[in-house]
């Protein structure tokens, strides 16, 4: 870990400084700083700036950026009205980490690509222009969708996948003022600049996340991984589906573990909406989701895995009493 200046913020405005690196839960940033993958010169601790409330806002919900994952997952409103979010959070990390990790920090977590984590490997995300040693390397965890020649990393989180499906909005604020970014657009694809994980501008700070009115229906987060707990997703599916009169009237889908961002394909949702659940239809939705999917070798299986998981999730959620 490189030496750094440490200061504690008493208000969020202090953290809106391009020269400062924000630390909240620290569960990923410190991990990376120990490997010197992250080398901030100045750290600002925002754990005491407030922003730690979950409150009703109209039909929706506003979640402060410093709300801990545990509190959010256990919040009675979230459990009842946005169970997909609870489920996604609870599928991630461990009890200890969820107690510390924050809503804003979780959105800011970086890829677990082992080449990004190795300062002796080439990585365009760590050092733009250096090249990518992941390509041609061991790629079990890597992207099958939206990757580029420069980067094949995945966004590793679960919470953001649910937020993406739930049409959440990320509230950010900088010296230039406040703005809102749809969760689906918060993370970006690597393109030719993988050093940027998301759409946050220098000096901007996440202040909270807003959830629109509850979607109702059945909500499922299915995470597939190499062990049953305490492991990142190989593939995850977030689904919220409402059924009326035997037809799917509203479908929201997002996918984790497959791209540089939570993956959402509105075309696939549109394909399903208004129709009765049917195996062939689910297959077509999977085709739409997987359009352009390409494996890197070790992760080729994710294409088939995503298809199977999606179809099974849809089948289960729309079956029997749905």
């Amino acid at each position: 870990m490189r030496p750094f200046d440490f200061q504690r913020a008493s208000g969020a405005a202090e953290a809106m400084d391009p020269g400062l690196r924000v630390i909240a839960g620290g569960t990923n940033l410190l991990d990376l700083m120990k490997h010197e993958v992250e080398t901030p010169a100045r750290l600002i601790d925002v754990n005491h700036v407030g922003l730690d409330e979950v409150r009703r806002e109209g039909e929706g919900l506003r979640i402060g950026a410093l709300v801990r994952n545990s509190d959010l997952a256990a919040h009675e409103a979230v459990r009842r009205d946005w169970p997909l979010l609870s489920r996604a959070i609870l599928a991630g990390a461990s009890g200890q980490i969820r107690n510390r990790a924050t809503t804003g920090g979780n959105l800011m977590q970086r890829t677990r690509c082992p080449y990004f984590y190795d300062i002796h490997a080439r990585c365009n995300k760590r050092e733009p222009g250096q090249g990518c040693d992941a390509i041609g390397g061991f790629t079990r965890s890597h992207a099958i969708l939206g990757a580029s020649e420069a980067c094949i990393a995945t966004y590793p989180g679960d919470m953001a996948v649910a937020l993406t499906a739930l049409d959440a909005v990320v509230e950010v604020e900088g010296q230039g003022g406040a703005r809102e970014i749809p969760a689906a657009g918060f993370h970006r694809l690597p393109g030719d600049d993988p050093s940027r994980d998301n759409d946050l501008r220098p000096g901007e700070f996440i202040t909270g996340v807003r959830l629109p009115a509850p979607l109702g229906g059945r909500q499922v987060y299915r995470k597939v991984r190499d062990r049953r707990s305490y492991a990142f997703a190989l593939v995850s599916v977030a689904l919220a589906v409402t059924m009326e009169g035997g037809r799917m009237t509203r479908v929201r889908l997002a996918f984790g573990g497959v791209a540089h961002k939570p993956w959402r394909v509105p075309e696939a949702e549109a394909l399903l909406e208004g129709h009765a659940p049917h195996a062939a239809l689910f297959d077509r939705a999977a085709d739409a989701v997987l359009e352009g999917a390409r494996g890197q070798g070790d992760n080729d299986f994710k294409i088939e895995l995503l298809r199977r998981t999606l179809v099974a999730t849809l089948t289960d959620a729309t079956g029997d009493a749905a």
Binding site: R112, P114, G137, F138, R140, R227, R228, S229, Y230, A231
Partner: peptide, 29 residues
């Protein structure tokens, strides 16, 4: 079911040299 040390076939880097990616069983397993 889960344990395997992966070495990068190009230079022998031990890729999953940590407890997150070298997967020993957790309690739930």
């Amino acid at each position: 079911l889960t344990e395997e040390s992966h070495y990068d076939r190009r230079d022998g880097s031990f890729v999953n040299r940590d407890l997150a990616e070298y997967k020993i069983p957790a309690n739930l397993d």
